[in-house]
Design a binder for these strands. Structure first.
Lengths: 314, 314
DNA sequence: TATATTGAATAACTATTGATTATGCTACCT
DNA sequence: AGGTAGCATAATCAATAGTTATTCAATATA
């Protein structure tokens, strides 16, 4: 049975100083207190630790052994704990961050690289997943914080919002994109509900929900099913499909700014009120962020603001 | 400041089980008890260790770190302490033994070697010194037990006999040895006090005291000074000096049995009552010997008895 | 929608333990 | 002898650890 660990601390001092009196002073207690501690420890481990002699104590072999095993622990633990409770004033260590697939792929490499040029003690573990998976992992304590995107409608937020602190990082506009040819030939430039639901659609797999949301947003009607002719994991591929005129797909406006300018791709906005996708930083409300987390988050926000992500057209 | 170490034990269980309830059962306490321990630990190290959620607790990064540092200690200490308090049923480890120069040199190599053939986990550190130095080291806890020789007169025992447990191992007879030539030519075969004090003496350095004792034993007279013509550290050398007829020296009778038989060396006994040198095993009275010590001591006694050390002539 | 259940937090109480003072012991030193 | 230093012991008091009872919040279940 494990002895009272606090007595081991007392023992450590008594042994190192070879004196109960000294140990008492060191530990800010009185000599009888120390004496009793040692005695009880001896009873607990059923072994004598010191032979008591006039004005001195002689450690036994058992004491030698006990000291050898206790010493490294006692001597390191306080400094180590100081590092936990009062982390160094430099960010360091592993940051476990979750991010949406597109956003993470596009922006995190550059941002993390820039951050590490300033704080080279920080390492990253970036998890690219869907928002609800990320929120789950956040709730399990597997991630320090996550970046998620969710539509402006509040009910789309799957997590347990009451536990989460959400900071808006930036917004992007979701558009239904069509190639110029497709828009002119297949749709005859019409954007009515009836026309739209009969078209061909391309999604990047995981979220046909975004399509439904788009329709609901503009027409306040549920669509039971749409004609998804292709679901492909890569958003790059999805855009290529649109360019080829395979059909319609929802994407972020800023990803196709140039092609909208040149008129190669047509963004379809049935009404003025656009679908906004909010990209936000989410962390557990009742966990106070570490210095490293705070620093990175501030850096992230600054970068996004400075670089105007998503970029406005010139 | 070092936290209450016992709380670390509680923390260890809570973290490993990811549950306060389970930890409570494991530690034989109730759930609120564990809950309070963790809370106090968090205050002590000024860091949250768990985020409390419904029916589960989520360890923070700080908890991860704390666990990593506490785990090896907690997991090893109890097994290690078991080895201290209830040593294995096999003798093992280092035996630190003190022995008189002659006795140690002559008998310990063979005895230790034989012992190690049976118990190969035992190692030795043999200190060959004068009795009072050995007893000092015993009292300082630097030796586990010592073998010393002391004359039959009790007042020769220098140590603090009240602290020591003394077991007689064997006895040897001290003789004043002379070569046949020296005895016949220089001493004219006389062994009177007057004749003896005027002779040349050889000692093995450290103990002219033995000479004084010898005179006191046989003549009840103090000798202020004797003519020590040679003091040499090696007892072998001392005997050679005697053989060469340089003078008289005190030695153990059994070392010169053969030469006494052949008449080459004359043992001088002024009276019948011989000077007995007791070879004893001494250990601290209030230290209970370990299994290893006990085993070796028993072995030592058996060897000395079996081999009849010192050997009687055939 | 109510109800039960589970795991943790909190409060209040009690039993244990820890720390203190006072005292005694013993070897050692003048 | 008398004084002293270091530890042990006893008695007391304070602190704290552990208990029961209760509350709370999020699930699961009817």
């Amino acid at each position: 049975m494990l002895p009272d660990l606090n007595r081991l601390k007392v023992f450590y001092h008594v042994y190192s100083l070879q004196s109960m009196n000294m140990a008492a002073k060191n530990l800010h207690l009185t000599q009888p207190g120390v004496s009793q501690h040692i005695k009880k420890l001896e009873v607990e481990i059923k072994t004598d630790l010191f032979i008591r002699r006039h004005k001195k104590i002689i450690p036994t072999r058992a004491a030698d052994q006990l000291f050898d095993m206790v010493k490294p622990f006692i001597e390191t633990i306080d400094s180590k704990i100081k590092n936990i409770s009062r982390p160094m004033n430099q960010p360091y260590g592993l940051l476990r961050i979750g991010a949406p697939l597109e956003f993470g792929k596009t922006y995190f490499p550059a941002i993390c690289h820039a951050f590490r040029e300033k704080y080279n003690q920080v390492t990253f573990k970036i998890k690219l997943e869907e928002p609800d998976r990320l929120l789950d992992m956040l709730n399990m304590g597997l991630l320090d914080f996550v970046v998620i995107d969710y539509f402006s409608a509040k009910d789309q937020f799957f997590g347990r919002p009451e536990h989460c602190q959400i900071d808006l990082l930036t917004e992007e506009i979701f558009v239904l994109a069509s190639s110029k040819e497709y828009f002119e030939n297949k749709m005859k430039k019409k954007t009515s509900f009836e026309m739209l639901v009969s078209m061909d659609f391309i999604t990047d797999e995981h979220e046909p929900v975004i399509l439904k949301h788009w329709f609901w947003h503009y027409f306040k009607k549920s669509i039971p099913s749409v004609n998804i002719i292709m679901a492909i994991e890569s958003h790059q591929a999805l855009l290529n499909c649109v360019r080829l005129g395979m059909g319609l797909a929802i994407t972020a406006e800023h990803l196709i700014w140039n092609e909208i300018e040149t008129g190669e791709i047509i963004p379809i906005f049935p009404t003025k009120k656009k679908v906004i996708n909010k990209i936000s930083l989410v962390q557990l409300r009742d966990k106070k962020p570490t210095l490293t987390e705070e620093t990175f988050q501030a850096f992230l926000k600054k970068q996004i603001k400075a670089k105007k992500i998503p970029r406005k057209p010139a």
